[in-house]
């Protein structure tokens, strides 16, 4: 028989590694994103160097094909990714949680209809739904990207919320609340939401990662934030033609994107293990 420990300090250390690494990566992007609001190394639209220069002391990751500083653009990209991620998750969470709670409380046939609709929506790729929403709006902007991704994510949030809420609604403390005279809105805010929140918030972190990648894809396709917003997806797309002569232009935004996505996922993992541990206490 092997000796493995249950709920022991070693497990605690393991999840704090994921949590810390995730927090470090995400924190770095948050710092850079905030920094862009007050300071940038160069004007992102100024032609500050030669075209397609390699890395140098003046231009840490070189310049693009118009001679603009790439590092400056990547920094702005951090801010845009965070803005879109946060915005999309906020929109998705608001629509999704509202719909999910309504479905959990709805009569059987309405609940079935909502559940089936959500399942169909989820079957479409997030990106496809987002593209349709952008196409339906007049003109691509940062806000249309946020709205589009938020709506695309909301189906996933709604489905999860519905399942989690239904699980809470069968608990005896909900019946006790009803027989204590608590109204349904009160039950939602006092009992249902606090109990599903830990699991939901882990999911929001994962959705944040999805939104960041989807935003890059939208921008890559020209459906994201328009210039002068330097989204990582657009930088990648612009560097595509010169990928053999100046590979750094494609590699750098790729690394930026991957580091944020991994950071967010590690953070979500760390959070989930924390939630699991706490639930394990019960």
């Amino acid at each position: 028989m092997t000796i493995t420990q249950v709920g022991s300090p070693s497990r605690g250390r393991r999840h704090s590694v994921a949590l810390r690494a995730g927090a470090l990566l995400v924190g770095m992007h948050v710092f850079v994103g905030l920094l862009t609001l007050v300071w940038l190394p160069y004007d992102p639209n100024a032609f500050t160097g030669g075209r397609l220069e390699g890395a140098s002391l003046q231009h840490m990751v070189g310049t693009d094909r118009l001679g603009r500083d790439l590092f400056t653009q990547l920094m702005i990209g951090s801010r845009i990714a965070l803005q879109v991620g946060t915005g999309a998750v906020a929109v998705g969470a608001f629509i999704g949680v509202t719909l999910g709670i309504l479905a959990a409380f709805a009569s059987k046939w309405l609940d079935d209809a909502l559940a089936a609709t959500l399942d169909i929506l989820i079957a479409f790729p997030t990106l496809l739904i987002a593209m349709l929403v952008v196409a339906a709006s007049d003109q691509a902007s940062l806000w249309s990207a946020i709205l589009a991704l938020g709506i695309a994510l909301s189906a996933i949030v709604a489905r999860l919320t519905r399942i989690l809420a239904k699980r809470v609604l069968v608990m005896d403390y909900i019946t006790a609340a009803r027989t204590s005279g608590s109204s349904w809105p009160k039950i939602v805010f006092i009992h249902v939401l606090p109990n599903i929140w830990p699991t939901l918030s882990v999911n929001f972190a994962l959705q944040f990662g999805l939104a960041v990648i989807a935003e890059a894809s939208l921008s890559y396709l020209g459906l994201g934030a328009p210039p002068p917003n330097a989204s990582w997806g657009r930088i990648l797309q612009e560097a595509q033609g010169t990928v053999y002569t100046a590979p750094l232009g494609a590699i750098a935004p790729g690394i930026a994107l991957v580091s944020l996505a991994i950071g967010v996922n590690l953070l979500a993992d760390g959070l989930r293990e924390r939630v699991d541990d706490r639930l394990g206490d019960r």
Partner: peptide, 14 residues
């Protein structure tokens, strides 16, 4: 009313 299962009759977050 008092229920059977004291683990599901109290909201763990309150």
């Amino acid at each position: 009313i008092v229920f059977q299962d004291p683990y599901s009759s109290l909201d763990p977050r309150q």
